[in-house]
Design a binder for these strands. Structure first.
Lengths: 223, 223
DNA sequence: AGTGCAGGATTGTTGAACAATCTGTCAATC
DNA sequence: GATTGACAGATTGTTCAACAATCCTGCACT
């Protein structure tokens, strides 16, 4: 009985607007719709075969997730992150991810975290750099999940999606995440040994490093 | 020049859907639309004089803020928070507010925090309990603002709006916030003395107390 | 160069329409 | 009496067409 209620979500009765939003979301986060692109209601509506009204519902969803910006009477655009945005995103991540690790009970289940670390390592060994990136995302998402809070998870998901907007400005996005694999492993080890405090400190240090690297690359392109 | 750009937002070119969402939001958070209420597209559209399509855009916005739940083919309802939701909201608050205080630099500007504390105290002295509640909300919002992060502020705003959904189940919502005024003052004092660590500990303790009080009242009403 | 003004294009919003789905009723059945 | 099935009414999901409001572009004019 109760087991079934868990599958209710899988019943997949997604609205058209929701599916449209999902399609656009993946196109945006994967860089196929680069920041600044204007999304014409007519063009995209025709391309996806949905009406303007339905499309507008999808736009609102993504605007609320900060992947699109909606300028009144001008249309929606793929968000163009400023350097301030990048700083803010990492400020948010240090606060949330660091706080989660610090408050992490010693007996917490680290299965998902370990899986993400191993997936990243094996992807790097095979040179599958895109997979390294997604594994790294999953690593941080699973760190946030240690809070055991759906709301923390969702906020983290949004922030990581935003960050993807800016990863594409890197000169070599393929290898951007690779140096952090060792840090991920170290943080996992520290968590397994129950030392959340040190893990949090290590994480915050490397987030700051990544932020610096990103803002540097950012200044080079959008000057 | 730059001063003007700050006023751009005040230029008030809000869309109809945005204004409708604002109206509904205030009705919900003030308890005039109690949790569980179904919001008929036709009725509300007629009452506000907007078309169904525009109204649906507003619904989507509020659903994304978790004030409404959207059930496919059944309509939208004012969210009914479960006890798990209450726990999650306070988990979120402890993480964010606590983390902000802990990471608070000693020289941070506390003007907004102080204003909120004083406003609460003077409202309590006059017996204006509703104002005590809003001042308390502003206190916590201004704590989150100490992070200097728009995203943290927004997340906090959403969480506090959600919490309002549940405040109305209290037997005496008027005086619910009153006992916490002294705690607010104490936290402000600790921050002014630069002891963010102790302030964070005090805050987390009293958030846990408030959570217990709320869940208790909750169990009494909704079984 | 800078300003002002058409004209076209796009968005904002509405209203109507139809399909899909839900809800409640009522009879038939065990 | 409780359960099932079918039907009708109501509501939502989605589309379409239309018009108003606004923006953008190009051009004449100074």
């Amino acid at each position: 009985m109760q087991e079934l209620s868990a599958e209710r979500a899988a019943l997949g009765r997604a609205s058209t607007a929701g599916r449209v939003a999902e399609i656009l979301r993946s196109h945006i986060t994967e860089g196929r719709l680069p920041p600044g692109t204007r999304l014409s209601e007519e063009d995209i509506g025709a391309a996806l075969g949905v009406s303007r009204n339905t499309l507008r519902e999808a736009f609102r969803l993504l605007a609320h997730e900060r992947l699109l910006v909606h300028e009144f009477n001008r249309g929606v655009f793929v968000r163009r992150l400023t350097v301030d945005d990048v700083h803010d995103l990492y400020r948010f991540r240090r606060l949330v991810e660091g706080g989660v690790l610090r408050a992490c009970p010693p007996d917490v289940a680290l299965d998902d975290v370990r899986r993400a670390v191993e997936e990243g390592e094996s992807a790097a060994a095979d040179g599958r750099w895109v997979d390294v990136g997604t594994a790294n995302m999953r690593f941080h998402q699973s760190l946030a999940a240690l809070a055991g809070s759906p709301r923390v998870e969702e906020a983290m998901r949004h922030v990581l999606a935003e960050l993807r907007l800016v990863f594409h400005v890197m000169a070599a996005p393929q290898t951007f995440h690779e140096p952090y694999l060792a840090d991920n492993r170290r943080i996992l080890d520290l968590l397994e040994s129950g030392d959340g405090e040190t893990a949090a400190a290590a994480l915050e240090r490397y987030l700051t490093a990544a932020e610096a690297q990103l803002t540097e690359a950012y200044a080079a392109t959008s000057g």
